[in-house]
């Protein structure tokens, strides 16, 4: 039995590195897409029509294009206009941009769930649109969007595998490809090892989200 998992145990160090690589992509991806997605959501509810148009266009483009296509554009398009960076950063940026469209829509649904009276009261004491959004509406909106945002973020964790398939090394999916195709190890045990790596990220994230949801829930 232990022999069967030899491809994993023999390369354990490689798996740990790959796990940490994936974890890093996930963390940058989560922070980046939450910040960018919230910003785009605030564009979409802005009183200024040009900002609304930018927000709508952003969501329309990036929510409706396959992630692979978005990644291709970042990986091959950006160098063509003179922007060069390690492949990893193109991968993370593509992932952030793609995921931000989904984050935006989840946050926007939360904004719409806050009663209009809250924003009216905020404006009537003299807060500007940005102030009323950041101090009154968003803090209440984020409470209701923890479950849908969690789903978006967990989906992004799994999408990090596509970034790996793109040739970004040092993360779980590319390690799987290397071990299986270059070194000819048997597929199933390696795949199981990789799967465990992803589950070690996604399952605790799910529990964390449950805790967060309970903690931010407030009676109103």
């Amino acid at each position: 039995m232990l022999d069967y998992f030899a491809p994993v145990t023999d390369n354990f160090g490689l798996f740990v590195d790959a796990f940490l690589g994936t974890l890093m992509i996930c963390l940058y991806g989560a922070v980046g897409s939450l910040v960018l997605g919230t910003l785009i959501a605030s564009f979409r509810v802005s009183p200024l029509p040009p900002l609304r148009a930018v927000g709508t266009a952003w969501v329309t483009v990036f929510r409706n294009c396959p992630l692979v296509i978005v990644l291709f554009f970042f990986a091959f398009g950006l160098p063509e206009i003179g922007i060069n960076a390690p492949f990893l950063w193109f991968g993370i940026t593509g992932l952030v941009v793609y995921t931000s469209a989904f984050v935006c829509e989840a946050v926007r649904s939360g904004i719409n769930s806050v009663s209009a009276g809250q924003a009216e009261a905020a404006r009537s004491i003299g807060l500007t649109f940005t102030q009323s959004l950041s101090t009154v509406v968003l803090p209440q909106a984020l409470r209701t969007v923890v479950p849908p945002l969690g789903s978006v973020i967990i989906a992004m964790f799994k999408n990090s595998a596509i970034v790996g398939a793109f040739g970004v090394g040092g993360e779980l999916f590319s390690t799987f490809a290397t071990l299986v195709s270059a070194r000819g190890l048997s597929i199933i045990p390696v795949l199981l090892g990789v799967a465990v790596g992803y589950l070690l990220i996604t399952v605790p994230a799910g529990f964390g989200l449950d805790v967060l949801e309970r903690r931010v829930a407030v009676s109103r």
Binding site: G117, Q118, E120, A121, S124, I125, Q140
Partner: peptide, 18 residues
């Protein structure tokens, strides 16, 4: 700025719930 000088009280109170 103008709204900050005009106090408003609503039917539904609209206190900031959080």
């Amino acid at each position: 700025k103008l709204r900050s000088d005009v106090g408003m009280v609503f039917q539904q109170f609209n206190l900031f719930a959080h």
